[in-house]
Simulated assay, not measured.
Amino acid sequence: MTSPETATRRRLPRGLVGVVVVSLLLALYGWAVVGRGIAMIRTGEAALIAIGIGALLLPLVVLVVIALEFRLATRVQRMADELAAAGRLPVDDLPRSPGGRIDRAAADAAFTAYREAVTQDPGSWERWYHLAFAYDAAGDRRRARGALRKASELY
């Protein structure tokens, strides 16, 4: 039985600890790269200055990419929470093989319905969200991420 305090506390996302650890390791690596970049720039040699500037820019690019991924993950979680509260989360009821793999023909059939729904209402973030999970079930992770990004933009 859960106490009222436990019931009201929000549970941390499953992968949060791993994401934080990897991000901290990446920050440590970035700090080391920036240090080397500054040391190269201080030499005064043209080639090392150019490499040093590149070494300073690389961690910035990585930070921007990480920030964008955190933003997407946060928005996707908010969308999932909203859909869960309304009882409209995508349901994974596709048939599976004994090994646990989703039946490809069933995934393709389900995908068609979700794609058609997006075609009918391309401004609905919820339909794009559902399409993303249909892409994922069909094994197309690249398009699944693209559909999640579109859902996030519309949200």
Rank of each mutant, 00 (worst) to 15 (best):
G30Y: 04
R9F: 07
Q120P: 13
G99T: 06
Q120I: 15
V20W: 14
M40Q: 13
S152V: 04
L58W: 11
A85T: 05
R14N: 07
R149M: 07
A132P: 06
P4M: 05
L60G: 15
D92A: 12
T6R: 15
E116C: 06
G35T: 12
G123V: 02
E153H: 15
T74C: 07
D108F: 05
R143P: 08
D121V: 15
Y129F: 12
A7P: 10
I51K: 14
D93Q: 00
G52L: 14
V21D: 14
L12T: 05
V22G: 10
V34K: 11
Q77W: 13
E45L: 11
I51R: 14
E153G: 10
L56D: 03
G30F: 09
V19G: 03
D108K: 03
I53W: 12
R9G: 12
Q120W: 14
S152M: 01
I66W: 08
P90Y: 00
P4K: 06
G18T: 14
Y129A: 05
A85M: 10
E126C: 01
L56A: 01
V64F: 14
E69S: 12
W128E: 02
T43N: 02
G99C: 14
I66R: 07
R141M: 12
Q77I: 11
V118C: 01
V62F: 05
A151D: 02
L68I: 03
P90M: 00
S97P: 02
V62C: 15
V64H: 09
A47I: 06
M40L: 15
V22T: 06
A106F: 02
A67G: 12
Y155H: 00
R9S: 12
S97C: 00
K150P: 06
L63P: 08
M79H: 03
V20N: 09
L63M: 15
L25A: 14
A110W: 07
V20G: 14
L58Y: 09
A39V: 01
A67D: 09
A110V: 10
A67R: 13
S97R: 01
A50S: 09
L63A: 12
E82Y: 13
A134Y: 12
R143D: 05
V64Y: 05
R145Y: 08
G139S: 05
Q77C: 08
L83K: 02
Y29C: 07
D93M: 01
A86Y: 05
D140K: 06
R9D: 15
G146C: 02
V19C: 09
Y135W: 08
K150Y: 03
L16H: 09
I41T: 04
L12G: 01
V21Q: 08
L57I: 11
M79G: 04
A132K: 08
